[in-house]
Design a protein around this nucleic acid. Structure first.
Lengths: 216, 216
DNA sequence: TCGATCAGATGTGCATGCAGTGTTGAACGT
DNA sequence: ACGTTCAACACTGCATGCACATCTGATCGA
C-alpha cells in the first residue's frame, strides 16, 4: 500500500511520514483534520523537527495543505478534483497496461490469474471491502510489471488522494463489471496486444470516472 | 517556469525552495552537486531550518536524493529514467491536448498562433535556445488551457527532471519538424477533434522519446 | 612506496528556544 | 440577549545546540 521510495526507516521523520500518510489514506485522519506539530510530537514522543519534516513531505505530496501561520490540515479533495485525478489515472493506467504487455511473463500471468479468480468469487459474494483490496492489487500488479518508477510513483500519488476522496463518496456498485473489465485487460496483456491493453485499461478507468461525474 | 502551487513567498523556506529548484533546473547546480545545509544557510544568511525544509521538498520531488547521514545531492537522471519520463510525458501531453480541445477558445487560439508564428521564424533561423523556450511555451499554453491542476503538476514534475537530464544530452536537431508537429497539434485542437489532438500530441512526444532512445 | 590508522573537520538528524501571529473565549457594554 | 474587545493561549516559522556518523588527510609501519 505504501511505497514512496527512499527507504531508510531508521530516520524518525521517515517513520512519521509513513505513519501519518497511512493515517490519512486509511481515513483515521479525515480531510480537514488539523496536524498540530507540537501535539504530534508529544504523541510520538519525539521532538517537533521530524514531525515538521513529515508534514512538509505530505504537503509536497498534496495530501496536506498548509496556510501561512495557520498550520496544516488534511487536504479536502473536491468532487471536481477527484474527476481530475481520474483523468490522470485514465492515461496512466493505460500507459502501464501497455508497458506491462511488453514485459509480460509467466510470473505476471500467474499473479493476475490468481487475483482474477479470487476477485470473481468475492464479487459474486458481494464482499465490497475485499473487492476494493483485490481491485487495487490487480492494478498494482500491472503497474509493477510495467517497471516504470516514474509512472508507478504518479499512480501512487493519484491513488492515495483518490482513497482520501472516496471516503466521502459512495460509488458502491459494479463489482462484477469490474471483474469483467479486469479480465479483458488481462486477456489483452496476455495476447501481447499493447494497443488493446492500453485502450481497455483506459476505458475501465474512464467508466469509473463517468460514474463519479454522475454520482452526487 | 516555476509553478508548484502553494504561493506564500513570505516564508524563507518557500523562497529557498524556489531558488534551489531554479538553480537545479537552470543547470547552475548540476547532478551530483552536494547540498550542504550549513553552507547554504550561510550563503543565504538564514538558519539551517528553512534550508532543511527546502531540501526535503526537493527530495520529495525527486530532484534531489539523500542518503542516510550523508546528506543530499542533485539527482542524476539516467538515460533509462529519461526514457521513462518521456513515457509518462507522452500520455500526459496527450491527455492535456485532449482536454485543451474540449476547452478551446479564442484566447487559446490567439496564444498558440502567436507562438507558432514566432517559433516558425526562429526554427528557420536556427536559434536553438529560443527554440527550446518556444517549445516549452507551446506545451505550457496547452496544459494551462486543459485546466487540470493534477495533470499540470505532473507535467511540471516530469519537465523539471527532463531539463536536468537534457543538460547532459545533445539532441539538438529537429527544430523545423517540431514546429510542423506543433502546427498539427494546433490544427487538431482548433478543429475540435480531441482524439486527433491527443494522438498527434502523443506521437510528437513519442518521436522525441525514440530520438532519446537512439541517441548515445 | 604503499597501505593501514586515526584524529580533526564537516555535516546530518533530532531536540529545543523564542518571537510573532492567529485563535478563542470570557468579560464587558449596550 | 447579543455584538465587541481584549487578554491568554496555541502554534508556526526561524534560530540554535548537540550527539553521532562520515569523510579527509596526515602519520605511521612494513
Amino acid at each position: 500500500m505504501t511505497s514512496s521510495l527512499q527507504a531508510d526507516p531508521q530516520r524518525v521523520g521517515e517513520v512519521l511520514y509513513r505513519t501519518l500518510r497511512d493515517r490519512i489514506i486509511s481515513g483515521a485522519l479525515r480531510p480537514g483534520a488539523r496536524l498540530s506539530v507540537p501535539a504530534l510530537a508529544e504523541e510520538f514522543h519525539v521532538s517537533r523537527s521530524p514531525v515538521r519534516d513529515a508534514v512538509i513531505r505530505l504537503v509536497q505530496e498534496n495530501l496536506v495543505v498548509e496556510t501561512m501561520n495557520r498550520g496544516a490540515e488534511v487536504a479536502r479533495v473536491s468532487r471536481a478534483e477527484l474527476v481530475s485525478l481520474y483523468e490522470a489515472r485514465e492515461v496512466l493506467e493505460g500507459a502501464v497496461a501497455r508497458l506491462a504487455t511488453e514485459r509480460y511473463d509467466a510470473a505476471l500471468r500467474r499473479t493476475l490469474l490468481a487475483l482474477l479468480a479470487e476477485h470473481r468469487a468475492v464479487a459474486e459474494q458481494g464482499d465490497f471491502g475485499r473487492h476494493l483490496e483485490l481491485d487495487a492489487a490487480f492494478h498494482r500488479a500491472i503497474r509493477q510489471a510495467a517497471q516504470s518508477p516514474v509512472l508507478a510513483r504518479m499512480l501512487d500519488s493519484v491513488q492515495s488522494r483518490v482513497l482520501v476522496a472516496m471516503r466521502s463518496t459512495s460509488l458502491t456498485g459494479g463489482m462484477v463489471q469490474a471483474v469483467h473489465e479486469h479480465q479483458a485487460i488481462f486477456e489483452a496483456i496476455g495476447a501481447g496486444d499493447p494497443e488493446a491493453a492500453e485502450e481497455i485499461a483506459r476505458a475501465h478507468i474512464r467508466r469509473l470516472k463517468e460514474l463519479l461525474r454522475a454520482a452526487d
